[in-house]
Write a protein that binds this DNA or RNA. Structure first.
Length: 483
RNA sequence: GGUGCUGUGGCCGAGAGGCUGAAGGCGGCGGUUUGCUAAACCGUUAUACGGUUGAAAAGCCGUAUCGAGGGUUCGAAUCCCUCCGGCACCGCCA
């Protein structure tokens, strides 16, 4: 969330930043914001003057009554009665204007840092030469990871589809264990080598948490939501509706297709009605542990001395992938549910730049220890996420796909999330200095790391070698799929 | 989920319609005393927003804030409603 005062002071920088991001009418957006802001401030002057007079008169009424001056009290009460309407109307207007301003600000992305390259899409991302590692292995006729996994009988998409639909998977035996081993391996690196505190956070969160990190209100279509029905309201309504529907179905002589369409339409109606706040409480499944870990400090004032805070967690992540129809439909690259080890840092504004490099080091360290070739790109203005000022993507080489694929994304969000979450810090003298900075990065996406291991360590006989660093976590096993 | 109790500043805790931005204590900061430290004593110590003075640091004035949001009242920490936490017991449960 942007600071309206900063926009007021330097609208040019704001407009420039948004234009770099590819926003077409940044000037119009800024003008609109400033107009609302001016209206709000003008209103506040009028409202606060009226409130000051009311408070003053109310005190005088108390004094008059204490002196038994009924006539004087009556005069004052008449005056205040007139102010009352004015104040109530002003307060309503203030709420309205503040909401409008907040709603406008809530969907405006962060401003890119100065050293982020301009560009519209991933084609304009710039490799960071000093961070490149390894060379792609030469493998004859490399298979894709799902071919390897399915041939091993340890990766089952069909049964997952039966139980949960597309974009889910069952892992079995050594591959199931590999996921667990990778998580432990990554967490050990981050906690022991980089000083992150391991967390096991909630994976169901409230609206406020997702607002804080920036997924809401703009990206609700990417999320899974759950509903906790209010039993007093939900079940009587549900049962009445169900009885009605069964009655209708029995009478109907329509074809199965028509019946199905009607049933789906009805279902949609139900979801909208009975999953509404009136009937239910709602929680969201986290799309990334960034949400749980960052909001750990929401609405708090931290002490400068305890910063930076560093958190890491291994959690499942849930994404609706609504806009990804047809993309990466085979295999484990893009799933509705995947597991990830996340890194989050909370820092002072002075620390965040260095911390960003350090976090990227930590993520890269995992790939280095696994000896997986990868490169790092700095995302251009058009490819960055909503809350980021600057982002490094780490891309691992996948021989089966013959391509570099994102396996980690490390972002410095500056004070953008801190403002939305209301997280500030105070210095040693106890003075509140302002919003903290927040950073998050994958360290790493576990599913995609498994994909990378399968494709890079595949052997001609269909087996897969286990990277040396990982073998202790696999009970000393050296190869998957060989007796 | 049910019933009861409960939510006050950095922390503990009083306050039960006006004199309360909020007693008292702890902690923090500044000072006096002191060879140093401690103790004692004195002073000071919230945040956000708006206005205003100032180059700035900061000052001054106002408004709001006692879990959150509404309401009653001339006036609400205090009364009413809704919601959200916490605690206790009951119910359910890995």
């Amino acid at each position: 969330m942007h600071d309206i005062k900063a926009i007021r002071d330097d609208a040019g920088a704001f407009v420039h930043g948004l234009t770099r991001r590819g926003m077409a009418d940044a000037q119009g957006v800024a003008d609109n914001l400033l107009k609302k802001d001016k209206a709000l401030r003008d209103l506040l002057v009028r409202l606060q003057t009226a409130q000051a007079r009311r408070n003053e008169a109310s005190k005088l009424i108390g004094q008059a009554k204490a002196k038994k001056d009924e006539a004087g009290a009556q005069t004052l009460m008449a005056e205040v009665a007139g102010l009352k309407d004015q104040i109530q109307q002003g307060e309503a207007e203030q709420r309205e204007l503040e909401k409008e301003l907040r709603d406008l600000l809530a969907v405006i992305p962060n401003i890119p840092a100065d050293d982020v390259p301009d560009g519209a899409d991933e084609g304009a991302n710039v490799p960071v030469a000093s961070r490149a590692f390894g060379t792609p292995p030469g493998i004859n006729n490399p298979k894709q990871h799902f071919e390897i996994g399915e041939a091993l009988g340890q990766m089952d998409f069909e049964r997952a589809a039966k139980v949960s639909g597309a974009r889910f998977v069952y892992l079995k035996n050594d591959l199931a264990r590999l996921e667990r081993a990778l998580a432990a391996f990554m967490l050990d690196i981050h906690t022991q080598q980089f000083g992150y505190t391991e967390m096991s956070p909630p994976v169901l969160v409230k609206d406020e948490a997702l607002f804080g990190t920036g997924q809401l209100p703009k990206f609700k279509d990417d999320l899974f939501a759950t509903a906790i029905p209010d039993p007093a309201k939900f079940w009587p309504a549900y049962e009445a509706a169900r009885d009605e529907q069964f009655e209708g179905l029995r009478k109907r002589v329509a074809s199965p297709q028509v019946r199905r369409d009607e049933s789906l339409a009805r279902q949609r109606e139900w979801v909208e009605k009975y999953y509404s706040p009136e009937f239910s409480r709602r929680l969201w499944l986290i799309p990334t542990a960034e949400v749980s870990l960052t909001n750990y400090v929401s609405d708090e004032i931290l002490n400068e001395a305890e910063l930076p805070l560093r958190f890491t967690a291994f959690t499942p992540c849930f994404r609706a992938e609504a806009g990804a129809a047809g993309k990466d439909t085979r295999g484990m690259i893009r799933m509705h549910q995947f597991s990830k080890v996340e890194l989050v840092s909370i820092t002072t504004p002075e620390q965040s730049g260095k911390e960003h490099e350090r976090m990227t080091d930590a993520a890269q360290e995992v790939l280095k220890k696994l000896d997986l070739a990868h490169r790092v790109v700095i995302l251009c203005t058009g490819d960055m996420g909503f809350g980021a000022k600057k982002t490094y993507d780490i891309e691992v080489w996948l021989p089966g796909q013959n391509a570099w694929r994102e396996i980690s994304s490390c972002s410095n969000c500056g004070d953008f999330q801190a403002r939305r979450m209301n997280t500030r810090y105070r210095n040693a003298e106890g003075k509140v200095k302002g919003p903290v900075h927040t950073l998050n990065g994958s360290g790493l996406a576990v599913g995609r790391t498994m994909v990378a291991i399968l494709e890079n360590y595949q052997q001609a006989d269909g087996s897969v070698a286990i990277p040396a660093a990982l073998q202790p976590y696999m009970g000393g096993k050296k190869v998957i799929g060989k007796l």
